[in-house]
Computed example of a mutant assay.
Amino acid sequence: MSEPTPVTQSLAHTGLAPSHPVVDGDKQSRMLVNNPAMRVVQFTFDAGAGLSEHDAPGAVAVVLNSGELDFTVDGTVHRMTGGDVLYLAPGVPHAVTAVEASRMTLVITDVG
């Protein structure tokens, strides 16, 4: 887990694509924000890589920055392409499989 990001501190992450490339045959993640209010994580997936079914305790917003993913939500597959957004209610099971090399940003909020 990365260092906590103070809720009272603004920050910017720039130049992420070159510093966080898609790795052949793998998925990678980078924590960008980590505090009690939210976590922001950027994922890269090579084609065929993904995340097995799991859930999150908070509300989740997913932004597919580039590529194409099959995002399964509670058993229903949603084909996402660059620019698409998906919302998950807390506790909903979901999984991800990359159809092609992809970059995804995930925001998890504390619904306390």
Rank of each mutant, 00 (worst) to 15 (best):
L51P: 02
M31L: 07
V85D: 05
R30D: 00
P36E: 14
P57N: 08
T76F: 03
A47R: 09
P4F: 09
E68T: 03
M31V: 12
G58S: 04
L86D: 01
G50H: 06
A98Q: 06
G48W: 10
F71D: 06
S19C: 03
P90N: 07
G58T: 06
A17N: 13
R79L: 13
V23F: 02
D70T: 09
G67N: 07
P36T: 10
V22T: 05
G75L: 10
N34V: 00
Q9C: 00
D26L: 15
F43A: 02
G82M: 09
V33A: 06
V77T: 14
K27N: 15
H13I: 02
V7S: 15
V7D: 14
N34F: 05
V23D: 04
S19E: 11
V63P: 00
T8G: 02
G67E: 07
V40L: 12
A98P: 08
Y87W: 14
V22I: 14
N34L: 08
H54P: 06
S66I: 11
F43E: 00
V7E: 15
H13C: 01
L11C: 10
P21R: 07
V85N: 11
Q28L: 12
L51D: 05
V62T: 13
M31H: 03
P4L: 11
L88D: 04
G48M: 09
F43L: 07
N65Y: 13
T5M: 04
V41L: 02
D70Y: 04
N34H: 10
D24T: 13
D46T: 06
V22M: 05
M80L: 15
A89M: 12
T5L: 08
S10D: 15
D70L: 08
D55N: 08
S29C: 01
V40S: 09
